[in-house]
């Protein structure tokens, strides 16, 4: 494993070093807000100490990143494959338009988490948030799975406008009740056996990553949010 000290290095230098590293196992220490780390990169295992800047792992194509602290905005933007584990919390627009891979956050996530996520064939994106999230969770979601666990047991697990424009995929919310209003595009049900089975595989992995007890996580009620129709805008138009 190669260690790169990021102190006093700007983002371009750090990104260049990561990109050109011959060793696929990289440790970045003293990271202070450098952006775009591992953008578009595959085949590397990167451990980050400190807080990376925006767009960590954007367009990432099969690398593994573990961040020991929190991350900023736009983590995993349009990510294609790979995995990002964050021991702290994440900022806004986590996993924007993500097509594949996994983003596991131990803490909370900001606004617009998992918006425009989509699945395609063997590509299936999964985001799991251990805490709560802000508004616009899963807006325009078209595929994959978004999970909010609220392990700290906050009153409001999501903000407003959850799943607006959603037309594919599933959002799981671990809660006894949902206090925030949901839009008409979304239908909210108790998660079925089958849904829970699908979820469990990912939660087992999540629990392991953060050293949590998987049973405690599963031992709570889950709602599942699905789109009301696959073609939400179908009848809006009149040919002119």
């Amino acid at each position: 494993m190669v260690t790169i000290d990021c102190l006093d290095k700007d983002y371009k230098e750090v990104c260049d070093l990561v990109r050109s590293s011959q060793d696929s196992d990289i440790k970045l220490k003293n990271v202070v807000g450098q952006r775009y780390i591992a953008a578009g990169i595959g085949g590397k295992n990167i451990k980050i100490e400190g807080v990376p800047g925006n767009a960590l792992g954007a367009y990432m194509d099969g690398s593994n990143i573990e961040v020991m602290a929190s991350v900023q905005d736009a983590v995993g933007d349009t990510m294609n494959e790979g995995k990002i584990i964050v021991h702290g919390s994440s900022g806004d627009a986590t996993g924007y338009a993500m097509r594949g891979g996994k983003i596991y956050i131990n803490g909370d996530a900001g606004y617009r988490t998992g918006i425009h996520m989509k699945a395609y064939k063997e590509k299936f994106p999964v985001i799991i948030i251990g805490g709560k999230v802000g508004s616009f969770l899963g807006e325009y979601m078209a595929g994959g799975i978004l999970v909010v666990l609220n392990l700290a047991g906050n009153k409001d697990i999501v903000g407003n406008f959850t799943g607006v424009g959603m037309h594919g995929g599933k959002i799981f919310l671990r809660a006894k009740e949902i206090t925030s209003p949901l839009p008409p595009q979304v239908k909210c049900e108790d998660a079925s056996e089958e849904d829970l089975k699908e979820l469990e595989t990912y939660l087992v992995e999540y629990a392991k990553d953060f050293n949590l007890n998987e049973k405690n996580i599963m031992d709570e009620h889950f709602f599942v949010l699905k789109p009301n129709s696959a073609n939400p805008y179908k009848r809006l138009y009149t040919a002119n």
Partner: peptide, 27 residues
């Protein structure tokens, strides 16, 4: 499945945000 491109990029609300997308693409 419908292919919906939302009106805004929901990660771009300013020139600074645009700069971020420009540079993440350059990276």
């Amino acid at each position: 499945s419908d292919a919906i491109s939302p009106a805004p990029h929901h990660d771009i609300y300013s020139i600074e945000d645009l700069r971020q997308l420009v540079y993440s693409l350059k990276e």
